[in-house]
C-alpha cells in the first residue's frame, strides 16, 4: 500500500489538473456554449448548433452532470471537435505533436552535454575568471527572451548571411538536409535557455559534491583531477539532473510555443495560437490538457528513473 502512495498522488494531481481546465471554462463570464461554438458571423444555423452543443455537453443541466460528461469524455480520450474545421482535437494534436517533440528533444540533445561540461569545469575552477564568466553567461542565457534571440539569429544567419532558411518546416523523411537546416535555428534558440538553467544547476550540485570527503581522499591518493571530475563527481552530481530535466520539459514546451511562432514551425504552439486567434476554444482546451498530462507523466517517469539510479532516495 505504501508503495502505491506516490502513484495515488499523481492520480490526484491528474484529476485536479483536469478539473481546473473544466472550471476555467465555467468561470468565464457569459455562456460557455457560445465560447465552445466560436465565431458565428454569417451562419444560418447558429441557434441549432448552440442547442447541439448544449445537448452534447449537458450545458442546460446541473453542473455536476456537466462535470460527469466532461470526465467521461476525458477518460475515453474524446477531446471534442474543432469548431472551425470539424476535425477531432486529438487528431489535430497528433499531427502537430511530432514537430514540437523533435524540437524539444533536439534542444535537449544539444543543451545537456554542453551544460554538463560547463557546469563541471566551472565548479572545479571556482572563483576564477573562467568560472565567473561561465556563470554570468549562463544567467544571461536564462534571462534572455527566447523569441528575441531567435529573431536576432534569423536576421544574422538567414537575412544577412543567407545561410539558413528563416522559417518553415520540411519533414525529416522527405528531405533530411532540409529538415536539419530548418530546425537548426529554432533548436539553438530553445537550447540556449536550457543551457543557462542546466549549467547553473550542474554548477551548484558539483560545487557541493566537490566539498565531500571522498573527493579529498581521491585527490590525496593522486588520482588525476580530470578523472575525479568526470568520473567520481559527475556520477553524483548528475543524477538529480534527471528530475530537473523532467521539470524543465514544461518550461520548454512553453518556450517551444513561442519559438514555433517565430520560425513558422507547424507544431503544437502554432496549433494553439491559431486556435486562440480563431476563438476555437475546444482546440485550446484539448491541446493544453493533453500537453499538461504528458508533462505530468514525464515527471513521473523522471522520478522513477531517478529512484532506479539513486538507491539512497529510497530510504
Amino acid at each position: 500500500m505504501r508503495k502505491l502512495a506516490p502513484y495515488f498522488r499523481f492520480l490526484v494531481i491528474l484529476w485536479v489538473v483536469v478539473t481546473v481546465v473544466f472550471v476555467s471554462l465555467r468561470l468565464t463570464p457569459g455562456d460557455p456554449a457560445l465560447l465552445l461554438l466560436g465565431p458565428t458571423a454569417g451562419r444560418q444555423d447558429t441557434a441549432e448548433r448552440l442547442a447541439d452543443i448544449r445537448e452534447r455537453y449537458g450545458l442546460n443541466r446541473p453542473i455536476i452532470i456537466q462535470y460527469g460528461i466532461y470526465l467521461s469524455d476525458i477518460v475515453t480520450a474524446d477531446l471534442g471537435k474543432s469548431n472551425r474545421s470539424e476535425r477531432r482535437v486529438s487528431e489535430l494534436v497528433k499531427t502537430a505533436a511530432p514537430v514540437t517533440i523533435s524540437l524539444i528533444l533536439l534542444s535537449m540533445l544539444l543543451a545537456i552535454p554542453i551544460s554538463i561540461y560547463l557546469g563541471l569545469t566551472a565548479a572545479q575552477k571556482r572563483e576564477r575568471p573562467y568560472d565567473r564568466s561561465v556563470r554570468t553567461l549562463a544567467t544571461l542565457a536564462m534571462a534572455t527572451p527566447s523569441f528575441w534571440v531567435g529573431l536576432l539569429l534569423v536576421n544574422f544567419f538567414s537575412i544577412r548571411l543567407g545561410l539558413l532558411p528563416p522559417s518553415g518546416y520540411i519533414k525529416l523523411f522527405v528531405d533530411p538536409i532540409g529538415y536539419f537546416s530548418h530546425m537548426m535555428l529554432p533548436v539553438v534558440t530553445l537550447a540556449l535557455y536550457l543551457i543557462g538553467t542546466l549549467t547553473r544547476f550542474v554548477y551548484t550540485e558539483t560545487a557541493d559534491t566537490l566539498e565531500q570527503d571522498y573527493i579529498r581522499v581521491s585527490r590525496a591518493m593522486g588520482i588525476s583531477s580530470k578523472r575525479i571530475l568526470f568520473q567520481f563527481v559527475a556520477r553524483n552530481s548528475l543524477t538529480p539532473m534527471i528530475i530537473i530535466v523532467g521539470v524543465e520539459v514544461g518550461t520548454l514546451i512553453g518556450g517551444a510555443v513561442i519559438v514555433e511562432e517565430v520560425f513558422g514551425l507547424p507544431g503544437l504552439g502554432r496549433l494553439l495560437l491559431n486556435a486562440v486567434l480563431g476563438r476555437d476554444y475546444p482546440v485550446v482546451q484539448g491541446t493544453v490538457l493533453s500537453i499538461t498530462v504528458v508533462v505530468i507523466l514525464l515527471n513521473i517517469l523522471a522520478e522513477f528513473v531517478y529512484k532506479l539510479l539513486n538507491p539512497r532516495s529510497k530510504i
Binding site: V16, S24, T28, Q285, V288
Partner: peptide
C-alpha cells in the same frame, strides 16, 4: 503540485482564450 505541472505559458493561453 497540480498547479505547478501546468506549463505557465499554456495555462496563460487557456485563460486568455476564455477571458
Amino acid at each position: 503540485d497540480s498547479i505547478l505541472s501546468f506549463p505557465i505559458i499554456l495555462f496563460a493561453v487557456l485563460i486568455v482564450a476564455s477571458l
